[in-house]
């Protein structure tokens, strides 16, 4: 379970660049909820994910994950409970380290790093198996440097790293936005497979309305730092792009102006 209670964050307060990024975000997720977050530029989608991950402290509000208030914990401490995939494929992996070394780092997320071996033989077998499930042939290149992989391969690997140790919450921050359409779809399908198999509570930010409609059991729309729509169940299943834009106009009093979201 996740509860976001009245989250507020202002960047560059008391300057000309002041920006209210989160203006009282409230959201509740049940275990196993797969929520797609959609909204225009500057709506606060990625900011919400960063607030949960602890990239910076929030000004106000609480983040409660499975009964624990994590809003005061540092980023690396929260990491034990979270799996994260970023928009930039370069961001989620260490390019100069091997595929198996990256996985070994992720397998120890939240654990104390000791003077034990950084990667064991038994682990390698497990990684080989998991990598082969991605269907990208990475299981035969386990000692290759991650920097040699394509963007799609790196995102798939990051996804595997984020879920290697079961996270209580998976945060996907526009993780297919930097990929070409075919690769994006492949990575989305891998995401769905991993999420469904492991029954993971997931927050997925996307610019893509179609993806938001197609994936997940709930759709949340943000606007100006607030949640303005929350659609689930049968209503979510019947949703269309036109319908969604209509609802956006009603809820926000504006028309949805985001070319990227419309065209993709």
């Amino acid at each position: 379970m996740l509860d976001l209670i009245n989250l507020r964050k202002t960047f560059n307060p008391r300057t000309v660049n002041e920006k209210v990024a989160l203006d009282g975000v409230n959201l509740h997720l049940d275990d196993g909820d797969f929520v797609a977050i959609i909204g225009g530029n500057g709506a606060g989608k990625s900011t919400t994910l960063n607030a949960i991950a602890g990239v910076w402290p929030v000004d106000e509000g609480k983040i409660v994950l499975d009964g624990t208030d994590i809003s005061k914990l540092s980023e690396h401490k929260r990491a034990g409970m979270l799996g994260r995939v970023f928009q930039d494929p370069m961001m989620g992996t260490a390019a100069t380290m091997q595929i198996e070394e990256n996985l070994a780092l992720a397998a120890r997320r939240g654990d104390r790093r000791t003077l034990r071996q950084g990667i064991t033989r038994a682990e390698r077998e497990m990684y080989r198996e998991k990598l082969s499930m991605l269907g990208l042939g990475l299981e035969d290149r386990m000692t290759a440097k991650v920097g040699l992989l394509s963007g799609g391969q790196r995102q798939a690997l990051t996804l595997l790293m984020a879920t290697l140790k079961r996270p209580r919450l998976l945060l996907l921050d526009e993780h297919t936005a930097a990929l070409d359409p075919r690769t994006a779809e492949k990575v989305m399908n891998i995401s769905r497979q991993i999420i469904e198999e492991n029954h993971l509570m997931t927050l997925m930010v996307t610019h893509n309305m179609r993806a938001a409609i197609a994936y997940g059991n709930r759709l949340v729309m943000m606007h100006a730092g607030k949640v303005i729509l929350d659609i689930s169940g049968e209503e979510k299943k019947r949703l269309t792009v036109e319908n969604l834009m209509e609802q956006f106009a009603k809820a926000s009093g504006e028309t949805f102006t985001n070319d990227r979201a419309l065209l993709s």
Partner: peptide, 28 residues
């Protein structure tokens, strides 16, 4: 030996990608 241990690997990761390291729970 040291840079092959869990602790040593976390140092290498910090140098390679700090943000990723924090996301993997490393105190950079």
């Amino acid at each position: 030996w040291f840079f092959g241990t869990e602790l040593g690997c976390s140092l290498r990761a910090t140098g390679a990608n700090e943000r990723m390291s924090r996301a993997q729970g490393i105190n950079t």
